[in-house]
Nucleic acid binder design. Structure first.
Lengths: 352, 352
DNA sequence: CGCAGCATTGGAAGCGCTTGCGGACCGGTG
DNA sequence: CACCGGTCCGCAAGCGCTTCCAATGCTGCG
């Protein structure tokens, strides 16, 4: 901390160039400089160029604080994520980050995982006065939370799911579920179990999409959905393992299982392996997501473009901030999902 | 946009209470209000209380922009992360977020994954003037990058690895590697392969830690490390699968393999399964991390407290910002790793 | 050739908060 | 009783940038 070496002046950070510096260097007033840099109309091209040059030369970066204080946007968007460490959310974040970066927006992360964290966020609203928009990652916003969010007075977009009152981009969970179920049914399965995950903290905007698909697909195939075949577990591999164990404990276990997601499915597979059952010969398993490790486990699944969902959401935010899509009805974009055949599904009671 | 209802002033979001409002309500000057709220000395207790009340009543939140503009800190810390979607980084982020939130600091995420992204970041330095500190997540900062970072003029902390010039918190990679290797050697393995991962983008502050452990452990056991047993692959399950395939292609394949991390190990396991080999009967595999899915695959591994590393780094940042640890030598905290025995390792050529 | 009309640009007023400076007051001291 | 050293508190000057308003200089049309 005592290295004010070179020429006595500290490194750049001590006093970054200000707009005034740029203006002076370009030989214009700060007002004009501001307009030039901000791409405002009514600035001569030559002037604009000169200012740009000066800014460049001085390595100028506007102080976001001052900009904001004076009425401009903050250039920041809050991202509310339940579980940053889970693959699904991580992908969403990556996509989002790419889009936001392209739009020159900063991503401020807020975790809203457990109930307390979540309550704390909506209560204290730490993002208040700090961002231009907020992106909600795959969780349903409750009525009261909706109000709190509204009090931020900024645009809101949902990624990784649908939401009634906000623009959103996600996949058709019910449709994805149908793809999985139809595959199983086409293979000839009649007794199909479902491992759903608990909706703690009201995760997933469309919590029942996949489960309802299970029910609907069965119904359409003329099979009465037996309630005992639907088990609900905590999210994760362990949950999936437990769920599978419960299913195996039934008088007549299913011949195939549709797991809410790949990690749950992987857990189910472990239980089967440990029980000495072969997959898919003895029991088929299918998940949703196309998690990278699902490929390693040769898990058949319904893939969804997660990163893409994040990216689109980011673009939506950027567009909104640019003033576009302002008056339009909240668009709900649905990206396509597709069945990925691997080796955990096969006709019942038959190898291959 | 046309609801300027009540007495001409917009709804709450449009005009949050300002310090002036608070001051007026408390019957003092803004200056005093500021001091009262800021816990400055020389403010009568009664006054302070009155201001506090007023602030409370008005649901006042200082405008961070104004605060900062007037000289305060930004209350934000930049987090540089290569791959947000990978489990390791996700965990790091979760831990970091928790610590920063506790310190009332916002987390601004910057991805520095691919070479271009990385160059872009260090070139444009989008975090400039926007944060009070930066946390580097598990990648080695190059010389020139170091300089750029320094030009930000803020504290820097490394999480998930070691770094010569910055305070850091991570694990002893070499030590972790030794734990894995020693386990294999104790089991009686002599011919042990290593699947290392490419250090693209100069990831991992201590890129050679685990590999050097492989070499050292072998040497200490009186075994000459055969170069053919060391294969380097791109990070990920597929890489691990390829690496294993290469190892199997050797004239004399190893009887055990130490994979750089769990995902790589999982890939190796798949190759073995597909080759019809049994794990661990025919070949033992061990990884590092204790990825949640490693448990599902019954993978033996060396666990490292990832989230904890993030948390500690966050605390370090907070402490630094509070002015503590200012003059101390950059501390390099090393958290403990531990061997987690599961079912992918056993004595060579012998089940169980 | 004169004037309206528009493109440009500068002046200046803040945005909301922190703080140096100094005034008003109070109790204590010589 | 005048004066000193504090304690409290208000004034006002910015922090760096945006934007309203007005001023300037041209251009083009009647």
């Amino acid at each position: 901390m005592t290295e004010d070496t070179q020429s006595g002046r500290r490194a750049a950070p001590a006093s970054p160039a200000t707009l005034d510096d740029v203006a002076r260097r370009a030989g214009v007033s700060p007002a004009t400089a501001s307009r030039a840099l901000g791409d405002h109309p009514h600035v001569a091209v030559a002037t604009r160029a000169r200012v740009r040059e000066a800014a460049e030369a001085l390595d100028y970066v506007a102080s976001p604080e001052a900009t904001r204080l004076a009425g401009g946007p903050t250039g920041r968007v809050a991202v509310l994520v339940p579980h940053p460490a889970r693959w699904f959310f991580g992908e969403l974040i990556e996509g989002l980050e790419a889009a936001l970066r392209a739009a020159d927006l900063d991503l401020v992360l807020f975790r809203v995982g457990g109930p307390e964290e979540r309550a704390a966020f909506f209560d204290r609203l730490p993002a208040r006065r700090k961002v231009d928009a907020v992106v909600v990652l795959a969780f349903a916003v409750a009525e009261d939370e909706h109000d709190r969010l509204a009090s931020l007075g900024v645009d809101i977009v949902v990624a990784g799911g649908r939401a009634a009152s906000y623009p959103s981009v996600g996949v058709d969970d019910h449709g994805a579920g149908r793809q999985a179920m139809d595959h199983l049914i086409h293979l000839g399965h009649r007794r199909i179990g479902m491992i759903a995950v608990e909706n703690t903290g009201r995760l997933a905007p469309d919590p029942d999409g996949r489960t309802s698909a299970w029910r609907a697909a069965l119904g359409d195939a003329g099979i009465a959905p037996a309630d005992e075949l639907l088990v609900t577990v905590p999210w994760g591999g362990e949950g999936g393992a437990d769920g599978m164990a419960r299913l195996l404990g039934l008088r007549t276990p299913p011949t195939a299982v549709f797991a809410h997601d790949d990690e749950t499915a992987l857990g189910a597979v472990r239980t089967l392996r440990r029980a000495g059952l072969r997959v898919p010969e003895d029991l088929s398993v299918i998940g949703v997501d196309d998690h990278p490790l699902a490929a390693l486990a040769d898990l058949t699944t319904v893939a969804q473009p997660v990163r893409e969902q994040g990216r689109r959401a980011g673009e939506l935010v950027a567009a909104g901030l640019r003033g576009e899509l302002r008056e339009r009805v909240p668009p709900a974009e649905l990206l396509p999902t597709r069945l990925v055949l691997r080796r955990t599904t096969s006709p019942p009671g038959a190898p291959r």
